[in-house]
Simulated scan of single mutants.
Amino acid sequence: MHTHPFRAAVERRDVAAIEALLAEDVVFTSPVAFKPYAGKAITAAILRGVLRVFEDFAYVREIANPDGRDHAFVFTATVDGRRIQGCDFLHFDEEGRIDDFTVMVRPLSAAKALSEAMGAQFERIAREAGEAGNSAGA
């Protein structure tokens, strides 16, 4: 069985390959923010932030529907010394790009640690997303 391109890109920590798999109109739903984030620039910036805060990240299970448009990738990681278990729920558009990206994590103590760690990244994430948006519009 071949490794899914998204999983392979994340496991290589290949941010360019991850970003290339995102649709322009992707919607990212965070495990710790109430409001979803819309657009490739902010989603890519958030995912780069996640790669910075997750330690010992590993996908442990992959679930897919027969048409390949919906995937669930179960993962484990450590955030600020807390073991976290989570799942990336991805939907792929007709071109094979991710147009819906939802992350869920447990337990609550690890979700809080993730929230704090990502909060500390937020200025950089917002700056990177703004820069990407500016360069895309230029």
Rank of each mutant, 00 (worst) to 15 (best):
R12K: 09
A45F: 10
E19I: 05
T29A: 07
A58W: 02
V32G: 03
E94H: 15
G81E: 15
V15K: 01
E24L: 12
R48P: 08
T29E: 10
R52Y: 05
F54L: 11
T29R: 09
A38P: 14
A38D: 12
K35T: 15
K35W: 12
S30W: 02
R48K: 08
L22Y: 12
Y37V: 05
D88F: 01
V74L: 13
T78W: 01
D25I: 10
P66R: 07
R61L: 08
V15T: 12
H71G: 04
D88G: 03
V74E: 08
E95H: 13
T78R: 10
T43R: 02
G86E: 03
E95P: 00
D67A: 14
F89H: 11
N65C: 08
L51M: 07
D70A: 05
G96R: 04
L90G: 00
K35G: 13
D88Q: 00
R83S: 11
Y37K: 04
G49K: 01
C87V: 14
C87L: 12
V50W: 00
V27I: 08
A72G: 09
P36Y: 05
N65T: 12
A17P: 04
H71E: 13
V53Y: 06
R97P: 00
G39F: 05
D80Q: 11
G96H: 05
V27P: 01
L90I: 13
V60A: 07
P36R: 08
E11P: 07
E62A: 03
T43E: 09
A23W: 06
H91Y: 06
A16T: 13
A20R: 13
F92I: 11
A41D: 10
E95R: 06
H71V: 14
T43W: 03
D80I: 01
T76F: 02
R69A: 15
E55S: 09
A45C: 10
F92M: 04
F57P: 03
F73G: 00
G68T: 06
T43F: 06
T43L: 08
F34K: 12
I42Q: 05
P31V: 08
T76M: 02
E11Y: 09
A38R: 15
A44Y: 03
R83A: 15
R83I: 03
V26D: 02
V27Q: 04
G39A: 13
G39K: 09
V60H: 10
N65Q: 11
F57W: 11
R48E: 12
E19V: 13
E95I: 01
V26L: 11
E62M: 04
F89W: 13
F92H: 05
Q85F: 04
